[in-house]
Design a protein around this nucleic acid. Structure first.
Lengths: 251, 251
DNA sequence: AACAAAGCAGAGCGGTGCTCTTGCTTCCCC
DNA sequence: GGGGAAGCAAGAGCACCGCTCTGCTTTGTT
């Protein structure tokens, strides 16, 4: 439909900030087209899901021939990976914003609730993205190592609550003795979360992590279908339960 | 390669049980071919995953032309649905067998451990099948209503442990007050699990259910990557923790 | 023996990812 | 300013997919 260069020639230069290193027509055009491809890809991903992400369809929608897209995107899987990384960052932003939005930062329960409500809200607002991050790996597609770092940012906003829980809260209720070998193999997790978190809290944190995402996944993927009617109340109940099970101080 | 009928004509009649209602040559041939298609589909599903399930590939492997397969299978998704149903049943069989294999049926902790170890073992033995059952729904494919019943059989072998837990065990540790509306909306779950299970145990059972499958999924899908080294010990620890958190009686 | 049902093979439609060649345009450097 | 190098669009093409339709053969039954 539209010739990319013609558009870039008009609005491209206007959109470059003054301090930018004076990109040529070619470079800004490339930026524009790349951005438009990603935007269209995101649109397809949101509406059709990962399997509906098709470079041919993107090209069709953007009025270019399919082979032209390969000038900007190395492959379909590469584009999918980029979109996944974007999604991880978006979810991490949402979680961190929710955590920061709590006025009284000493109110751990409020922060805990805010973070998990935000994560669940994002999951239901972007089900296909969530499925990509926390569902089964996409068929025929293997997540490259690059996804580990952005994923850990989401985990981080959850792990950041464990340290204040360890200091402000009491001990973990109904603790279970931690086997020696398990305790020894937790070093990387201990380093990630931070100092001052005892092993039983660390392990119950791992359980809570999987438990919360498991609850969201079960709800989103239909496993909880028919189990209860009042979904929001159930999830809030789960949030509160986990806060208690992690030894969170009562309000 | 092989002409289906030629094979069926030889081994088909031999495989029909004597008491069977005297299937004609045609009917037994149809059975044979259908079974072979399903077997080949299962093979592909196990090795390539759901996306690798291709009727054309099945036809190629079976030495027939692609259109011929459609005489036996209405569509690719229909075959996938059948295989999913089979997988649900297989997992349910595994779980029930593990439960029944415990000599002392009064030892709830042993039964609890046996069931979950079996489920996890099956998940790792059949990762693609597990992803189909408990991962994100397959792109472009929506599980029909038929999957609900077989899925509940798996859930049932887990829910069956809640009733003896309620009677033999004490109360749920660190209970959290159940909101009125939530309690009211639990009727179907209460009916499914059985009488005599208080609401807080019912709810924590739902949490444990999602938590255990969440832990398996996290481990299988790579979310736990690098969190701990001793995976088996960790999972056993999670099993024990949940047993305690459900108020299971100490050994 | 005749007939209708069942089954097979092949061509074909529209879709996918991806590659290669061909010609053109822009850029950069001499 | 001119020329070479690099970037780009277009199109054809390959191999794959699900699925359909048309003939033709085989089969089981009447």
């Amino acid at each position: 439909m539209l010739h990319p260069l013609s558009v870039c020639g008009t609005i491209g230069p206007m959109s470059t900030s003054p301090g930018a290193p004076a990109l040529g027509i070619r470079a800004t055009a490339r930026r524009e087209v790349t951005a438009r491809i990603r935007a269209e890809g995101r649109r397809q991903l949101a509406s059709e899901g990962a399997a509906g992400l098709s470079l041919r369809a993107i090209a069709r929608e953007l009025g270019m021939v399919s082979s032209a897209v390969y000038r900007y995107v190395p492959s379909r899987d590469a584009l999918l990976t980029e979109l996944i990384l974007e999604s991880y960052s978006a979810l991490a932003d949402v979680a961190e914003a929710a955590n920061a939005s709590v006025p009284d930062q000493d109110d751990l329960e409020a922060r805990w609730r805010a973070v998990w409500r935000a994560i669940r809200g994002w999951a239901f607002a972007h089900p296909h993205d969530y499925a990509l991050l926390y569902g089964s790996p996409v068929p025929g597609y293997r997540a490259p190592q690059d996804t580990v770092a952005p994923a850990s940012r989401v985990t981080g906003s959850f792990a950041a609550l464990l340290v204040p829980l360890a200091t402000a809260g009491g001990s973990v209720p109904v603790p279970v003795a931690v086997p020696e070998s398990l305790s020894a193999s937790l070093e990387s997790t201990r380093a990630f979360v931070g100092e001052g978190v005892p092993d039983d809290l660390l392990l119950r944190g791992l359980m809570a992590w999987a438990g919360m995402f498991g609850a969201i996944s079960f709800e989103l993927f239909g496993q909880y279908e028919g189990a209860f009617a009042d979904r929001d109340t159930y999830f809030d109940y789960v949030i509160d339960q986990w806060f208690v099970l992690l030894g969170g101080p009562p309000a």
